[in-house]
Amino acid sequence: MIASARSWVDIYLTEMRIAIQQQLQYRVANYFYMIGMIAEPVIYLVVWTTVAEQQGGAVGGLDSGELAAYYIVWTLVRNMNIVFTPFGWENRIREGTFSGELLRPMHPIHYDLGYFAGWKVVVILLWLPLAAVLSLLFHPTATITPLGVVTFAIAIWGAYLIRSLNQSSLGMVTFWTTRVGPVFDIYFTAELLLSGRLVPMSLMPDWVQQIAWLLPFQWTFGFPIEALVGGLSPEQLLGGLAMQALWIAIGAVVLRRMFSIAVRRYSAVGG
């Protein structure tokens, strides 16, 4: 049992080391990618700050400083949320590179998880100066508690796991049919609206918030951000982590089941 756990740690750490080495080779590209990614939250921030000012300084209970804090943390959570996508599954199946991964004595998800986790280490390092610049420009305000920091540190990895499992499960569709980009787009649109990525969930109507609570999206985006800067109560923090645990369990079961059925359909074309 302990030996097995040690082996898994070894696998993940080695994969992470590989990813870090590889991504450091592309540090300039990574940096420009992150800078490009900042455009999205800055637009949201400017729009909502303007709306807040027009409404007397706050919108949906958030003032411009809190909106700034939300969207600055957003930039890190968004980067943490980058996972192996269904489009990646489509490619690896269509081009046959999946064969090599199937020959390994472990589920391919472990490779993806380990590799992207290593990438995150580089991302976090690169994010720190960007966050400093954004803070100087937009003056964020937030009440940050130690429990909030600990929850945030766990929640960003929980979010990463949920999103990885969900997107890989979605990627299983490519075993049945290729070119499923439009199907994925529907999923990503729902995620954009119901996760807290487009707007903080507190700005959404109540009924949307209730629907979102039942879906996995906000536990991968809005919750980690609010855990750090949203002033959530300890009950809300622990409840959020419990919801993440639930969605990780659901994602793992769904992926395992779908993979075992899907892999029988693999035709190993081109590989």
Binding site: S7, D10, L13, T14, E15, I18
Partner: peptide, 10 residues
């Protein structure tokens, strides 16, 4: 890459 293979194959 060989190091990764070592880990994967334990």
């Amino acid at each position: 890459s060989y190091e990764l293979i070592r880990a994967i194959y334990r």
